[in-house]
Amino acid sequence: MSHDPTDAPALDQRVHFYQVGSFAVGNRLLNADDRTVQSSAQRTNSIDSGHRACQGCGEALGARYALDAAMRATNGRLLAVNATGCLEVFSTPYPETSWRIPWLHSLFGNAPAVATGVSAAMRVKGREDVRVVAQAGDGGTVDIGFGTLSGMFERNDDVLFICYDNEGYMNTGVQRSAATPPAARTATTDVVGDEPGNPFGQGKDLPRIAMAHDIPYVATATVADLHDLERKVERAMSLRGARYLHVFVPCPLGWGAASNETIHLARLAQSTGLFPVFEAERGVVTNVLPIRRWSPVEEYLTLQRRYAHLVGPRGRPDIVARLQAIADANVVRYGLLPDERNDGEDD
């Protein structure tokens, strides 16, 4: 029996269970080192209040999560480069900026190269303590920025590139990108014809393309698992060279979802297997985030108007089945549902 507070840490190590564990943003029961950056009142708030993102914007949230974590990992020695897109437009309309960190926006398709230049400048000046992050939406990453991104990877420039993937060109009014999933409705993939919504293509799986460059670090994350995301940013910043983080950020406007469902949708994307969360070093998967509570894809689709043509009495169960098959394939490919699960903490 111990009630002496000085004994508490030792006991805490034995009692490996902390109520909300590492699922909630904060937890007074965790050791200070295990708490998230976001739970701290001293967090940077890299992107500040007053930005013009839509209600419930996943990208605004993801950017703060990632950059605040990077700020902690670099002890505040961080420079950010931003591609054109929602994030850029809603954060820096003259005369107001929401960024509390040094930030540079050049063009839509060149953020990786601009970041290379920034990184080179720091290296040549002997200021390698100052680290560089580049960020873009999925369009700026998988489409128009793909060339410069691949170049940056190939040269292994010391840049962490973060893609905030909301699966389309939202800033211009919700058009399709190469990251738009099959069957989703966008302004350029309307729900007409035999294959309503976005046609089933081959997909453009940028994390795996990044892995093919054998760069030091590739990871995926969602805004639904903050601890995981922050840990990955921290890991990324502990390494040098080209690193890639692909963050899934639901878009209430573009997906036709309620503004309060942003995190829930991200969680469902992970727990259906549609968005596998994993990390890889030097081209080899080193870790996957297992599905904690599996959900069928229909549960995810039902919450979004972009899939409204697939569900309900006049829906398309055949197409839902194809989407389910994609999720199932991810589960197999990454081993997202291990047979035996430990109870309690995700340790």
């Binding site: 190269a113 290379t116 230049g117 060339g147």
Partner: peptide, 28 residues
Amino acid sequence: APCEFINVESEFAAMSVSIGASAAGARA
């Protein structure tokens, strides 16, 4: 020296790298 010589994948990248370097205070 000191100088970073960077072989890039396109002229678009060449100018973009120069933009980044210059904005970070380097002569590009």
